[in-house]
C-alpha cells in the first residue's frame, strides 16, 4: 500500500514536472495537465473547465431525457424504441445479476445514470471544439492557453465523486439488505484467526475500490486524450481517426465497466458470508 502511494507520488511528481515543462514552453510543446484548469472563482468555488463541461453534459442529457420522456407513447417511435430497449435491457440484466427485482428497480436509476453520464462525457470528448476554445493568458512564462471545455472524466474530482457515490451506495445497500451486524461480520470477524485475516483483507480491498474506481476511469480517459493529443501533434490528418474510434470504444467500455462493477459489488455486498 505504502509502495503504491509513493509510486503514485513519483508519478505525480513526474507528471507535474512534465506539466511544468509544458507550461514553460506553452507556445511550442504539447500542453498536458493532470489537474483541470481553473478558469475563475465563483463564491469561493473554483470554476474549472471540467466543471463547465460536466454541466454541459448534464444539460445535454436533460434535454434528451426531456424530449424522449415527454413523448412516450403506447406505440413507440424509433427514438422511444431505442431508449425502451436500452432501459429494459439494463433492468433485465440487473434483475438477473441481483436476483431481486425490487432492488434492481431501486438501483436502476443510479446504475443507468452512471453509465449515461460517463458515456456521454466520454463521447463529448471528441466533439470538435472541445479543447480548442480557450482563454489565452499572458504570464511571465509567455502565453498560456486554457481551454474552456475539457473532457469531464479527465478530472479526478469527477471520477472520485462518482467512485464515492458508488462506494456509499454499495455499503448502504449491503447494510440495508444484510443488517449492520451481519454486514460488518464480512470485515471484522473473530470466529477464527483466518477469518479475521480474510476480513481485514476484504476491508482493504473494499476501501481500495475508491481508488481503483476513480483511477481506472480517470487513467483510461486521460491516457486516451494524451495519446490522441500526441498523435495529432505528430500527424494531424487521418492517422488520429482510428485512434479516436478506438477511444470512443474505450469510452463506452469504461462507462459500462463503471456501471457494471458498481452492480457486481452491490451483488457481492448483499450476498451473506457463507457459514463454514
Amino acid at each position: 500500500m505504502e509502495d503504491g502511494i509513493t509510486a503514485i507520488e513519483h508519478g505525480a511528481d513526474a507528471a507535474a514536472a512534465v506539466a511544468e515543462a509544458a507550461g514553460a514552453h506553452a507556445d511550442s510543446g504539447i500542453h498536458i495537465a493532470l489537474a483541470a484548469e481553473q478558469l475563475g472563482v465563483f463564491f469561493g468555488i473554483p470554476i474549472t473547465n471540467t466543471l463547465i463541461t460536466s454541466w454541459a453534459v448534464i444539460l445535454i442529457l436533460f434535454v434528451i431525457a426531456f424530449f424522449v420522456g415527454r413523448s412516450i407513447k403506447m406505440i413507440p417511435g424509433r427514438v422511444q424504441t431505442l431508449f425502451e430497449t436500452m432501459i429494459s435491457f439494463i433492468l433485465d440484466y440487473m434483475t438477473e445479476v441481483l436476483e431481486d427485482a425490487k432492488l434492481a428497480r431501486k438501483l436502476f436509476p443510479l446504475i443507468t445514470t452512471l453509465f449515461l453520464f460517463i458515456f456521454a462525457s466520454n463521447i463529448l470528448e471528441f466533439t470538435p471544439g472541445i479543447g480548442s476554445f480557450g482563454l489565452i493568458e499572458h504570464t511571465a512564462l509567455g502565453e498560456v492557453f486554457t481551454p474552456i471545455l475539457r473532457s469531464v472524466n479527465t478530472d479526478l474530482n469527477v471520477t472520485l465523486a462518482l467512485a464515492i457515490i458508488a462506494f456509499v451506495t454499495i455499503e448502504v445497500v449491503g447494510v440495508a439488505t444484510l443488517g449492520f451486524v451481519k454486514y460488518t461480520k464480512k470485515f471484522i470477524n473473530f470466529s477464527s484467526p483466518l477469518a479475521f485475516l480474510v476480513g481485514i483483507i476484504e476491508l482493504f480491498s473494499e476501501v481500495a475500490r475508491l481508488i481503483s474506481f476513480s483511477f481506472r476511469l480517470f487513467g483510461n480517459i486521460f491516457a486516451g486524450e494524451v495519446l490522441i493529443l500526441v498523435i495529432v501533434s505528430f500527424v494531424p490528418y487521418f492517422i488520429p481517426v482510428p485512434m479516436m474510434l478506438f477511444e470512443v470504444f474505450v469510452g463506452l467500455i469504461q462507462a459500462a465497466i463503471f456501471a457494471l462493477l458498481t452492480l457486481f459489488f452491490v451483488k457481492m455486498a448483499i450476498t451473506p458470508v457463507p457459514e463454514h
Binding site: L61, I87, L110, T113
Partner: peptide
C-alpha cells in the same frame, strides 16, 4: 442528473 433523468426518462419509460 440522477433525479432529473429519473423524473423525465426512467419513470415514464418504465411506466410505459
Amino acid at each position: 442528473l440522477l433525479l432529473v433523468l429519473r423524473y423525465f426518462l426512467y419513470t415514464p419509460v418504465l411506466k410505459m
